[in-house]
């Protein structure tokens, strides 16, 4: 079943078009990744799906409800972890979770148990009664994910869930997140601008300047780049390259003292190549295409910091526009 259906969605803030006619669908109980640089329109799309913003045009449906006209049904079906922490740092972990349980009208008989379960799930049972201001970034993020699940939502939104975390807590958080669809029967909708993190997604949509420029599984997307690259060093590169072209019918050229070969399944090709030209091989290495390569191929630019900072300008422009017009 398609739990999210978005059709020709547009959102304009004055002269700025943050979301420019995007359409996509998300399958139930999968992890869907929204990938793109800062300012590409990820957070705006999430805000529309979460009923916090009204679209300029187009429609968005979540769990069969219209995200604009049936906001309270949609709100009941979603949990959200925002980019910036939305915990009350002057309350304890348990109090924050209880607050959530009351807000979402969790049955009185179940309230305490769900809060205890969420604390255990976030591995914070021993810190349950400590104030949030004593928590690390990773602990807060885990607690927010657990909080978002207390009312058993159908979809959990994670907006840049690992932003500002150290590598250790980042990988912990990913283990934790990839487990969610199975354990909690929930669909994960996440955004990130870290390409390597999107590998865990079942399906990815790459967004740039408010438009979806590609979508598919991580494997499908990598095929856009053309598969793996094998690098070979041999005693006679020229001769070996000729042999490989002849025997396997693939591109093989020499550069910087190495032969590089583009193939679809690198790990299956290496044994064949070595068997044929074995005696001459000095070293072999293989590189898999990353989603970063995909983005590079599609847009001609890297999704790196210098680019991200250009996106930040757009972000700031949108923020100040909203400050003037929408107020929050």
């Amino acid at each position: 079943m398609q739990i999210i259906k978005v059709d020709s969605l547009v959102k304009k803030f004055g002269a700025i078009t943050a979301v420019d006619g995007i359409s996509f669908e998300v399958e139930e109980n999968t992890i869907f990744g929204f990938l793109g640089p800062n300012g590409a329109g990820k957070t705006t799309t999430i805000s529309i799906l979460c009923t916090l913003l009204a679209p300029t045009s187009g429609t968005a449906y979540l769990n069969g409800h219209n995200c604009h006209s049936e906001s309270s049904e949609v709100r009941r079906s979603i949990g959200i972890v925002f980019q910036d922490s939305s915990l009350d740092k002057d309350l304890t972990a348990r109090e924050n979770l209880l607050f959530h349980a009351y807000l979402y009208d969790v049955d009185k008989a179940e309230r305490k148990k769900r809060v205890d379960d969420a604390l255990a799930f976030a591995e914070l049972s021993d810190r349950a009664d400590n104030l949030i201001k004593t928590f690390s970034g990773g602990m807060k993020r885990r607690l927010e994910v657990a909080r978002g699940l207390i009312h058993r939502p159908k979809v959990l939104f994670l907006d840049e869930p690992t932003l500002g975390l150290d590598p250790q807590s980042r990988s912990n958080l990913w283990e934790f997140i990839t487990d969610l669809p199975k354990r909690h029967n929930v669909t994960i909708f996440m955004t990130t601008h870290y390409m390597e993190e999107a590998e865990v997604c079942d399906k990815i949509a790459i967004i740039d300047k408010g438009r979806i420029i590609a979508s598919g599984t991580p494997q499908e997307l990598k095929k856009i780049v053309g598969g793996d690259v094998i690098y070979l060093k041999t005693t006679d590169n020229q001769k070996a390259a000729g042999q490989i072209r002849e025997l396997f019918g693939v591109e093989a050229s020499e550069k910087d003292g190495e032969i590089f070969i583009s193939v679809l399944k690198g790990e299956a090709c290496i044994p064949d190549i070595i068997r044929e030209i074995g005696e001459r091989v000095l070293s072999v290495r293989m590189q898999r295409p990353t989603l970063n390569d995909v983005f590079l191929k599609l847009t001609g630019k890297e999704i790196r910091e210098e680019y991200a900072s250009a996106g930040d300008d757009i972000k700031e422009a949108v923020r100040s526009y909203r400050r003037r017009h929408d107020r929050g």
Binding site: T51, I78, F82, F99, L103
Partner: peptide, 8 residues
Amino acid sequence: MKEILVAP
């Protein structure tokens, strides 16, 4: 406030 505003 976001936590409150997205609640049903």
